[in-house]
């Protein structure tokens, strides 16, 4: 990347604390903790085992739910995208479930699932599941028919066509779904942790609010932001590794 773009990007990141500093300095937003207060709170948290436990908990929840979501959504999406019968059987039901807000699932899942851990994981899973599913369907439908025909004329059966043509050809769309899905997994996770309680960064942030330690709220928010960005970067790395033949758009 050229130096100028690097500088602009660094500026974009730096603008946030500068703006924040100005806001607190001029007293525009009442009750907003100053950057220095947050920084010292950060240092404090940094030495607490509890904080790292929350980070680990949330990260593991996201990663596990995300992997399960991808493992279910990708094959399902490929099948829905390619087989009309399969699409008619499953898609209308899925489309009905999709608009239900994640939080609305919590009371129900806490009731039916044996542990609140599972209900948090479930809505995290949902966050990743639908974007990956929808993008995979679109990717599978967008496969140029002559690629499948070429494969068939070279002797590929339907499974082999799936494996060697439909799936790789849909990969860029699948990756786009994974990037969106990773973001939504974090959104749903934090919501779940705040409502269901127990552990995790969502819970940490929420209990900081109820106990009135405002700088810790900001610490929670920043940590979530950083972890979210890191996970998206991880997905992009994975995507680039998986399709070396085509650069993934990084913008």
């Amino acid at each position: 990347m050229e130096t100028r773009r690097r500088l602009v990007r660094a500026g974009s990141v730096l603008a946030v604390p500068i703006l924040w500093f100005l806001l607190t300095r001029l007293g525009i937003v009442a009750g907003l903790p100053t950057p220095t207060a947050v920084a010292s709170s950060f240092l404090e948290e940094f030495y607490r085992q509890d904080f790292w436990l929350s980070v680990a908990r949330s990260t593991v929840r996201v990663l596990v739910s995300f992997v399960v979501a991808a493992a279910v959504a990708i094959p399902l999406g490929l099948l829905i995208g390619r087989y009309t019968v399969f699409a008619d059987l499953t898609f209308p039901a899925l489309e009905m479930l999709r608009p239900i807000p994640p939080i609305a699932w919590i009371p129900f899942t806490i009731l039916v699932l044996p542990a609140s851990e599972l209900s948090i994981m479930f809505i995290t899973f949902l966050g990743a599941f639908f974007p990956i599913l929808l993008n995979t369907i679109q990717g599978a439908r967008g496969v140029e028919v002559e690629f499948s025909r070429a494969a068939q004329s070279l002797g590929a059966g339907s499974f082999q066509t799936f494996r060697h043509v439909i799936y790789p050809s849909a990969l860029p769309a699948i990756h786009a779904g994974m990037i969106v899905g990773m973001g939504l997994a974090w959104v749903n996770l934090i919501a779940g942790e705040m409502v269901a309680g127990g552990t995790g960064l969502g819970f940490l942030t929420w209990s900081a609010y109820t106990s009135g330690s405002y700088p810790t709220i900001i610490v929670g928010i920043i940590t979530i932001g950083v972890l979210g960005a890191l996970s998206s970067a991880l997905v992009r790395l994975f995507a680039n590794w998986q399709i070396g033949w085509r650069e993934v758009e990084s913008a």
């Binding site: 140029e144 002559e146 690629f147 025909r149 070429a150 494969a151 068939q152 004329s153 070279l154 002797g155 060697h164 043509v165 790789p168 050809s169 990969l171 399709i243 033949w245 085509r246």
Partner: peptide, 20 residues
């Protein structure tokens, strides 16, 4: 009744698999 490897096809637009 369907495609067969005995009948090979070359398409107008290149249809090499870009991912291979």
């Amino acid at each position: 009744s369907g495609p067969d490897p005995k009948r090979g096809v070359v398409f107008q637009d290149n249809r090499l698999f870009p991912w291979k």
